[in-house]
Write a protein that binds this DNA or RNA. Sequence first.
DNA 1: CTGAAAGCGCTTACAG
DNA 2: CTGAAAGCGCTTACAG
Lengths: 323, 323
Amino acid sequence: MAPTIKDVAKKAGVGIGTVSRVINKQKAVGDKTRDKVLDAMKELNYSPNKMASQLRKNKTKIIALLVPVINHPFFAKLAYFIEDEADKFGYTVLLVSSQQRVEKEVEIISRIKRREVDGAVFVTHFMHDEKVFKDCPIVSIDRTFSKDVPYVTSNNYDATKKALEYMIEKGAKKVGFIGSKPLVESEVMDRERAYIDLMKEKNMPVRSVNEIILHGDESRLVNDFMNKYPEVDGVFVSGYSLSQVFYKNAVDSGRKIPDDMQIISYDGEFTQWSVNQITCVEQPIEEMARKIVDLLIKKIRGETTQTRTVLETRFVLGSTTKK
Amino acid sequence: MAPTIKDVAKKAGVGIGTVSRVINKQKAVGDKTRDKVLDAMKELNYSPNKMASQLRKNKTKIIALLVPVINHPFFAKLAYFIEDEADKFGYTVLLVSSQQRVEKEVEIISRIKRREVDGAVFVTHFMHDEKVFKDCPIVSIDRTFSKDVPYVTSNNYDATKKALEYMIEKGAKKVGFIGSKPLVESEVMDRERAYIDLMKEKNMPVRSVNEIILHGDESRLVNDFMNKYPEVDGVFVSGYSLSQVFYKNAVDSGRKIPDDMQIISYDGEFTQWSVNQITCVEQPIEEMARKIVDLLIKKIRGETTQTRTVLETRFVLGSTTKK
DNA sequence: CTGAAAGCGCTTACAG
DNA sequence: CTGAAAGCGCTTACAG
């Protein structure tokens, strides 16, 4: 058996309370006493049992991160910075990919209630009953759960409109939109709204395919779009995977990029991952991640936070728009 | 305060042991009793406290996954399947990215000792003292910790040799190797060994750059290589990120691929992530992940396992080698 | 089939 | 500054 606090106390000839105070680095311990305890701990190769202190303190210091899939550039990058930021505050991240088993999403709520984790980040689009997560420390991205759930988003509407205006300025005449629609009310929908509004303003016809799909199922959407609107010479693609699939499809179908087809995507600047540089609206993923953790920790502490946080995107020129 | 097992017992008019048996779905409970308990649980909106049962059972049902960075296609894909497989066995995955703070690697060992997690997957290259992780349930990838630590790897040597032979057959005359060397003894080193052996067999000069670098620092290595061996017309690149950087660098420097420069990489088939298809040796990441979890759970249960598991790679033709 | 009780390994008032 | 004791919310022999 691993040594317990009792063994340390006995060996050091002190009470267990004193050992606990040494472990938790509280001031009120005499120097010689502390040394005795420290020696005993070393000698026994003692490690304090976290499960016990968790139970006593009613804190796990764990947050759950819920993503549809982790092997996706956006979610992976977000996870990277969330983990990094959480670590700074002594929290670790429990990773949950929900796409294979959607029940995992609602299970997270139980996990908070069961005190397996202190809180959770929801980066998913499953529909939930508002009441279920009442009083649960949760932060989300893009989507509007309810007033109780703070979320971080980017300036979807403005950024999309600006990007489309740029493309039109560069000569695109038949402009389309392709996206994978979230299941629930989310600010991601503002991207298509911006597109539609701009088409109206410019008196251009709407050529849009925006459907609910799973990650990994992008090809179907792209094929639909290409069959429906083969004449398109400029497209706004909402999402990184989709833009990669679209790019490939366009090239394979003999189109020259950007001459025959200009492409701008929402998300796309993941230099490590890919050689292609698609002109894109880049979300400030790092900043979003840090803000999310910041909000979540406040929630866990019971502090009040703002509901909506909007961060600015950056327009990045690549090789898929004309000069 | 959240209701406890005591509250449920009182409301149902039974003992707390009985409630516990209902929670844990043990058979030995009468139907009417169970119903009473279930009703009380529902009425109180009761969730069993996991921290308490963990402490009693001395199990967390959590495994730690230690990677240098999660936002990398290989690690992200591995994480995806590890999470999926672990979930099947009732385990969840604690995500730890160690590159920003290397101490995290050794902290994992303490976390096992402290019973924060039941075991860990090490996908990193930091050097550790063998004795430290003695008796800790740990599984690794590619690297040889010690006999106590099982690991999963791929047929690095054979796959690399075969790939290089293919490239030479397709006309490469000045063949180089570029890789990021692991810090510790790892089967990844077999890739360079295979290259060097083959060069000897073929009587071709060795043109190799193989250094220790951090993820995100690939450009320097590629530049080194290009400056040192500008004459190269075929290269084996060990690792996905490196291959992407290399590809881009080659194109930017005016080389036509595959005419002026053939490229084969170890890792590379991540279709979702990138449009480019580099000819590559593809590791069976899903299979590796599932095997890792399988081994780790056996270790946690105290069963003995084989130390080394080798899985077969697949050679995937892309557009970076000649027809 | 079920209840009362001990105990998992800690933390934290409470005295002194 | 320090010890003895209660208690966090469960699980699990032990009786019955």
